[in-house]
Computed example of a mutant assay.
Amino acid sequence: MITKVKSFEELTKLELYGLLQLRSEVFVVEQDCVYQDVDGKDEKALHVLGIKDGKIIAYTRLFKPGDYFKESSIGRVVVARNERQYDYGKRIMEASIKAIEDHFNTTRIKISAQCYLQKFYSNLGFVSVGEDYLEDDIPHIAMIKN
């Protein structure tokens, strides 16, 4: 898998279609969660694409401090179901953390993590803060990396 970091304006039509398709496949269909994925925030975000054999198989979107949370943030973390056994989740997150450092000049990152992935994010240096909460009827927890 190779990674690319692009602004919204730099995305090609095929890349935009691919990342939206992946997000829909996982968040809406696989997780059976009806929610507004195309939320008007993609235009502000940096997009980290994980590409294998010409197809987007992993993805995150990044926000600078103040655009989503007070801290910089990583969201819409997703890996295609048939690619999860290859450690691409860790690789796309490491690329995302580096992109935040490079583009936003900060190491403080906040995420809204699905609770079942708490250990995964802890292994990347994130620490849980506060209580669990429901986001789109899925249990989440806020996590911070300093």
Rank of each mutant, 00 (worst) to 15 (best):
M1Q: 03
I2M: 12
V5R: 01
E10C: 04
E10H: 08
L11D: 08
L11Y: 07
T12K: 02
T12F: 06
K13I: 11
E15N: 06
L20V: 05
L20K: 03
L20C: 14
R23A: 09
S24T: 14
V26P: 05
V26M: 07
F27S: 03
F27C: 07
E30N: 09
D32R: 13
D32V: 07
Y35V: 11
Q36S: 13
D37Y: 00
V38L: 14
G40M: 09
G40V: 07
K41P: 01
K41Q: 12
E43M: 04
E43S: 05
K44F: 01
A45E: 04
L46H: 01
L46W: 02
V48Y: 06
V48E: 06
L49I: 07
I51V: 15
D53T: 04
K55Y: 06
K55R: 15
I56Q: 01
I56G: 03
I56K: 03
I57F: 01
I57W: 00
A58D: 02
T60G: 12
K64A: 15
P65F: 13
Y68M: 13
Y68E: 10
F69V: 02
K70S: 12
K70L: 05
S72N: 08
I74A: 05
G75R: 02
R76I: 09
R76L: 08
V77I: 13
V78T: 12
V79Q: 07
A80M: 02
R81H: 10
R84I: 04
Q85W: 00
D87A: 14
Y88F: 15
G89E: 03
G89Y: 05
I92S: 08
M93H: 05
E94K: 14
E94W: 02
E94L: 15
E101A: 14
H103N: 15
F104D: 05
F104S: 07
N105H: 15
T107C: 10
R108I: 10
R108A: 10
R108P: 00
K110L: 13
K110D: 02
Y116Q: 11
K119T: 12
Y121H: 11
Y121K: 07
Y121Q: 08
S122W: 03
L124Q: 11
V127M: 12
V127D: 10
S128D: 09
S128P: 11
S128R: 11
G130W: 13
D132T: 14
Y133A: 09
E135G: 07
E135K: 11
E135S: 13
D137W: 03
P139Q: 09
A142C: 12
A142E: 15
M143A: 08
M143I: 10
I144Y: 12
I144L: 15
K145W: 11
K145G: 03
